[in-house]
Design a protein around this nucleic acid. Structure first.
Lengths: 251, 251
DNA sequence: CTTTGTGAAGTCGTTCACAGCA
DNA sequence: TGCTGTGAACGACTTCACAAAG
């Protein structure tokens, strides 16, 4: 995901597998729900069901964090909430900036899931001067001239990019130059960043395309199920220059 | 990802690895950009760079689709665009419904990346009667009473859930009952669905939490780098009931 | 007797490195 | 000669299955 070399391929010490890290927020969510219902303990089986994974995976995941369970009993909910929160770094406050306050940027600014997990929207930044000063989610939008100053003044290390694709790389470069070391990218572009900067991307249309792939398979299931090469090209070459290649993208 | 058993674990025939499927949209995006610049051919090396992966992976991915390249030359851009589009099922039109027209739902309705890839927003649905009739992104919002009818009338098989967490499972159940077989879930809940229904989820706060995890590591890097157990708990048990466990979630 | 924690086995995915074709 | 296509080696993640602990 991250372009930069970061997640210690060497040093082999307390490395939690990436796949495990990606599931910790899931466990935390399930545990928080249990905590709110004042449930004191859970078994790996119950918690796994609530998080949508299987229990062996969950136990192995937790084993990377330490031995936090009690055999024959299960896990103490409050204690686990705390341990996972700490592991994820959520016991501290993370100021974030959102750059690009269009529909998506505004939705992100309004999104409650951030604040409730220790992420504080420190600033909203947009390139459109007409936006400047207008409050979104109660926070006044600032012009991108101020980008560097805002990041330094607030000690921001996480940036969210919600600009159009074309603006994403320049914005990214400025964020990195200003000291940002983690970026969540919603723009449909590959960002290049120096080593030491993490990038994660969320591409809404990619998810739909993956669903479409599987959906297509379902449709062609009753019919010609497994008759070798189903609708594939003539297998060998078909290297006709082009011209008859159907137009796919609606401009 | 999907809760239901779907992706043929047996039958071993033309199975494209899930990891490859997830990258096809990435390649497609890079190829589309090349196509727009009228670039006729690309090498695996160039295309890999544009898509942000390494070239060996890309070649292996393409090998699952067939032999679409020319040794010594590279890949024909237009031809590949077509092949990948077809493989993903994007040569057909996919009507989708978006349920939950809050900030996020509205942003999704306005998102250009859907329409440009064969996804057509067939309807916007919300439970709030006050929203009914109000146009969002040029499409009038319909009340959720109509949900089943809308799905049947439009032959919709893909649904997007952008409701609050509490409403997601009931909405999901209704979508499935009405014939939806693919769901993109933005609500922060685990959805349970019957076999044969695919669910993919996008959780905005999870991505930030993963970034925070790595960010935390970076901070503690210069200091006590690899001194065994860094800040971890007393290793053995610490099973005190609770009470002194720090509060983590700000209510 | 219940449920965790974990070696060992199994599965999936990535990378290497080179044979084969244009 | 240049670049694709792919077995084979490698590494990461998952699942199994059971010993150990409460």
């Amino acid at each position: 995901m991250a372009t930069g070399r970061t997640h210690r391929p060497a040093t082999r010490s307390r490395g939690i597998p990436e796949a495990t890290v990606a599931r910790l927020p899931l466990y935390l969510r399930a545990l928080t729900a249990l905590s709110e219902r004042s449930v004191p303990t859970v078994s790996s089986e119950e918690l796994a069901a609530a998080a949508g994974v299987n229990s062996a995976k969950l136990r192995k995941d937790f084993s990377y964090l330490g031995s936090y369970g009690t055999r024959g009993v299960g896990y103490d909910v409050e204690y686990l909430v705390y341990q996972i929160s700490r592991e994820l770094g959520l016991t501290q406050d993370w100021p974030v900036v959102i750059v690009g306050i269009g529909n998506l940027g505004a939705a992100l600014a309004n999104y409650g899931g951030f604040a409730s997990r220790g992420f504080r929207v420190a600033a909203l930044i947009d390139a459109d001067p007409a936006m400047a000063g207008k409050p979104v989610a109660g926070i006044p939008v600032q012009h991108s001239d101020q980008l560097e100053k805002i990041i330094e003044d607030n000690g921001v290390s996480i940036g969210v990019i919600a600009t159009p694709a074309g603006a994403a790389q320049p914005v990214c470069d400025r964020l990195v130059a200003a000291g940002i070391t983690s970026i969540l990218n919603f723009a449909p572009t590959v960002l290049s960043v120096p080593d030491g900067v993490d990038v994660r991307k969320v591409d809404l249309s990619i998810e739909l395309q993956i669903l479409a792939f599987h959906e297509q398979r379902k449709a062609g299931e009753g019919a010609a199920a497994d008759a070798g090469a189903v609708p594939l090209a003539p297998k060998a070459s078909r290297k006709g220059p082009d011209g008859d290649v159907p137009a796919v993208m609606p401009a």
